[in-house]
Each structure stands twice: as C-alpha cells, then as structure tokens.
Write a protein that binds this DNA or RNA. Sequence first.
DNA 1: GACAAATTAGAACGTTCGGTCTATTTTTAT
DNA 2: ATAAAAATAGACCGAACGTTCTAATTTGTC
Lengths: 202, 202
Amino acid sequence: MRSNSRKEFTFIELARRQQIIDATIESAAKEGYAGTAVSKVAQKVNISKSVVLYHFRNKDELIEETVTQIYDSLWSFVQPRILAESTANAQLRAYIEAEFEYLEMNRDQLLALSSIITNHRNKQGDLYLLEKATEAYLDLIGPMLEAGQQSGDFRSFAIVPMARTLMHAINGALEHWVRHPDISLRDYAGELMTLFDLATQQ
Amino acid sequence: MRSNSRKEFTFIELARRQQIIDATIESAAKEGYAGTAVSKVAQKVNISKSVVLYHFRNKDELIEETVTQIYDSLWSFVQPRILAESTANAQLRAYIEAEFEYLEMNRDQLLALSSIITNHRNKQGDLYLLEKATEAYLDLIGPMLEAGQQSGDFRSFAIVPMARTLMHAINGALEHWVRHPDISLRDYAGELMTLFDLATQQ
DNA sequence: GACAAATTAGAACGTTCGGTCTATTTTTAT
DNA sequence: ATAAAAATAGACCGAACGTTCTAATTTGTC
C-alpha cells in the first residue's frame, strides 16, 4: 500500500519517479506537449506504461509534478541571484543573467516547461498552468520593478507590460537558441540587459 | 472533378472553404491546436467531417491555408502603415500601433495563429510553420531596424534580439488581453511604444 | 426533364490515446 | 525461509483521431 495519507516514498520509488519525470522533460522538449504520451515516456525508460501510472495517479499528476519540479529548480537558482543585489538596476541585470545561465544548463527543462504550460488544459479547458505560472512570475518580478520605481532608479512604466515583455523576451531567446544552437547566449543576454536598462531608465 | 491542375474554385466552394477556415480559427483560438479536430471543425459548421476533407486534401492543408490566410490578412494591414512613415522611430511606433489595432479587431485570428504555429509539426517533427513565420517576421522587421541604425535614429543593437523581443512582446500582450479582456489595449500599446522607443534610442 | 458533375452524410478502418485490470515477479520485513 | 508488500508487464477497454469509401443528394447544363 503506497502513498495512502502521508506515507513517504522509498528511495526506489523516488528514483523511479525522477527517472519518469526526466523522460517526460526530454519528451516534451523534443516532441512537444502533444507528442508526450504516457506510453512514449514509458518507452524512454524501458518500462511498461502501467508502471508510469503506478507511480503517478494519472497523466495530469505526472505533468503537474514535472512542471512544479522545473519551477522550483529554476526559481531557487534565480531568486538568490536577484536578492544578492541591492539596486534595482543591478537586480534586473542579475535576473536576466541568472535566467540565461540556467537556460544554458537546462535547455530541455525550459523547453518542456514552455510547451507544457501553453498546452496543458484541465477538463474545463483552461490553461491553468500558464495562468499560475504567469501570476507567479508577476509576483516575483513585479515587486522588483516597483521597488525600482520607488527608489527612483526606474521611470514610471506600467508594471505588467514591462514584466511580461521581459518574460517573453527571455522565452524568445530560448526559441531562437533552439533553432540556432551556435549563437552566443551570453551576447543575447547582454543585448537584453541593455535593452531593459534603457527601457526602464529614469 | 475539382482542383485538378489549375481549375478555379466555384463561388460555392470558396464560401465553403472560407466557412471551414473560419471555424478552424475559432476552434484553434478557443480550444487550442490540440483541441482542433477535423470532426469538431465540421460540427461547428454543421457538416459532416468528410465534407471538410472533400474541400481540403487533409488536415495539414486546412491548417496551412488557415495560417496563410491569417498572415496575408495581418501583413497587408500592417505593412502599409509602416511604409506610410518616413523616419525609423515613426515606423516602429506605427508598426506597434497597427499590430495592436489588428489584434483588437481579430483576436481569434492571432490566437489561432499562435497556437497553430507553435504546435503544428510535419512528419519529421519540425515546427516548420513557426520557423517560416519567424523568418518572415525577421525579414520584415529586421530591415526596418537596420534602416533606423543606418540613418542614425537607432543605436547599434543586435537586430535579432530586438526584433524577437518586439515580436514576443506583442504576443505577450495578446496573451494578457485574453485573460484580462477589460484592459486597455491602447494603453498596453503605448507602454510598448515608449519601451521600444527607449530601447532603440541613440 | 435528363444527365453528369459537384457536394454531402455516414459508416467504416486502423491507430493512438489515457486508463484499468490481472497476474507475475521482485523486494522487504520478520 | 516465508509471508506480505511493492513493483512490474501485458492484455484490455472505450474514446478520439485522421482518413477512406460508398451511397445518396443537390446543383448546373443542355
């Protein structure tokens, strides 16, 4: 009897789950969300697909845990880098730099994330993961921008368009990098840093 | 016998095809690319699904013609507005303004476009519509930015990151508008205009 | 009005999907 | 060593997919 109430996972189960999640990330990155079927994920790990559904209640749970894991990993990398800076300008640059560094190390993770959250819907048809992700993003980046306006480092722009543009600009970099793997991500990051330096400047 | 060699379409056939394409747009906008099945499109028009595949060779052709039509419509609206301006700064603002105007009038078109091109793959698994669309975009916006640099109106930034950020910024506005239909698109457009004014400025 | 072409509906096909069920093997605990 | 629990493979299910086929109906033409 597993996972009734708050039973902890065994090491084996944790390993299996991680293995399956990794395969899900790889599949979603390479074949997209639509191409990520339970059977294909299982095949990647060389297990029967019923094993996937033994370790995860259903596909939705697998998808959600995959997304959660990626987000936790990403933000736990990025957030300290932001908080390490004291001025708003430095924080903004640190955020872009950190996100690009993470991007370079975890391409498939962010590709999978993007493909999943823009396609995965609940029974009601809502892109609820996209909604949650966007809200979480604004909650993290919004205050940073507002602080910059309070301190006088930033001009008074509307927070949402600026934060969204920043978010989508970085996603655009990922999209570009996928199709042109030889570009310098460092250069791209540098371009975005000056771009948003100028865009936010007083 | 229809569509052998270069037989023209009858008025009725043209009307049917347009009807089907419109339903495809509506479906892709509301249910996403994955939710856009031939049977559902047919249902929207109250015809049998075999009728859809009578007027279009297969689903791929339906999707491609839908995308082509949206792009032709969008660019034939936007491009004259750009060319009507003489300075690079004015062209950039005109482009953003025009794209937002089109957006406000044709929400479903651009939602469908976005969902389709980021998901539709050929047998080899390539997102070829996304690739084509991005290249076409860069071919149109890139020269405008380069001209601005030549004339000294713009600083010397890398074209691709700037063009891509512009593209994704507008797509981000669409995404935001969908979830917050009451926002002022005019305001959002204004924010982007100043943002990119500053970002490109000498 | 008759005949051919264009258009349509609906059944059917093979495939894939997420999910369930059962039986078997492997692991763990005593 | 043995009994219980965990883990796995594989068959199976109903639903949905794109596509094909056939038969019927509508339309256009002479």
